[in-house]
């Protein structure tokens, strides 16, 4: 019996300018690597934000680890990497180590103080992700790719069971992007971390993800990558040629 990590039933979100998501139902089980894809403005980011309780849900329900999202409090089991371009105040005076340390807050209760052990945990992860050398730099001084890795480290430092990544590769060049996807795949495989990854490069995510969720305000497809490649709906949506390019494994 696979363990349910994320589940939604008829989820709908209508905030700000009208209806964004309608009637989304899917279940993610432990160890899944789900690629959430779809065109710009299709509600991909809204979906993950709704799962995290960051935007209000207007209909239906969503659950994380079996408990409803609006009352969810086991944040130590979740890591989240938001769309970075909206995130960073370029003059924010925090170092890489300080930012990554914030990821540990979810494991602490009041008053949330950090110990030497926490600092060692942060250092070890920075080492592992190859950013130990920049740990004393300010977050605003880093390149887009470095910032992305720092935020990934922040999302992973509490050793979450579920990692939610929103457009993590937007600021990366193709080569770094490839390495980044490899890294996520490794985390998923070796540590058994469940991954939800929002992206618009359908082709690349297809090579790594175990499941695809295709979204355009409604959920148009949810299933394995194999099925995605052979789905007639998808071929009519993309055209046979594009579907073939996406599904061709390098």
């Amino acid at each position: 019996m696979p363990v349910e990590i994320v589940a939604t039933e008829g989820l709908g979100c209508s905030y700000r300018e009208g209806c964004v998501l309608e009637d989304i139902s899917f279940t993610v089980t432990a160890g899944d690597y789900v690629g959430i894809v779809g065109p710009n403005g299709s509600g991909k980011s809204t979906l993950v934000q709704a799962l995290l309780g960051l935007v209000p849900v207007s209909s239906g329900a969503a659950r994380l680890f079996g408990s409803r999202c609006d009352g969810f409090n086991q944040w130590g089991r979740v890591g989240y990497l938001p769309q970075s371009l909206h995130l960073l105040n370029p003059v924010f005076p925090a170092t890489v180590a300080e930012v990554v340390g914030l990821g540990l807050l979810s494991l602490k209760s009041f008053p949330r103080r950090f110990t030497r052990h926490d600092r060692n945990t942060v250092d070890a992860l920075l080492e592992e992700l190859g950013i130990y050398d920049i740990r004393t730099k300010l977050i605003g001084e880093l390149s887009g790719g470095q910032q992305q890795r720092v935020l990934l480290a922040r999302a992973m430092v509490n050793e979450p069971e579920l990692l939610i990544l929103d457009e993590p590769t937007a600021a990366l060049d193709p080569e770094t992007r490839q390495r980044f996807y490899q890294m996520i795949a490794d985390i998923n495989r070796t540590r058994g971390v469940t991954v939800l990854l929002v992206t618009h490069d359908t082709g690349v995510i297809g090579q790594h993800a175990s499941k695809m969720l295709y979204l355009d305000k409604r959920m148009l497809f949810y299933g394995s990558f194999e099925d995605f490649c052979h789905s007639p709906e998808m071929s009519s949506l993309f055209g046979e040629h594009s579907q073939h390019l996406m599904c061709h494994r390098h």
Binding site: L52, L54, W75, Y80, P82, L102, L105, R154
Partner: peptide, 12 residues
């Protein structure tokens, strides 16, 4: 102060 959304997901 760094980011309110991230803070919430860290249980703040």
């Amino acid at each position: 102060t760094f980011n309110e959304g991230l803070a919430r997901v860290s249980g703040v």
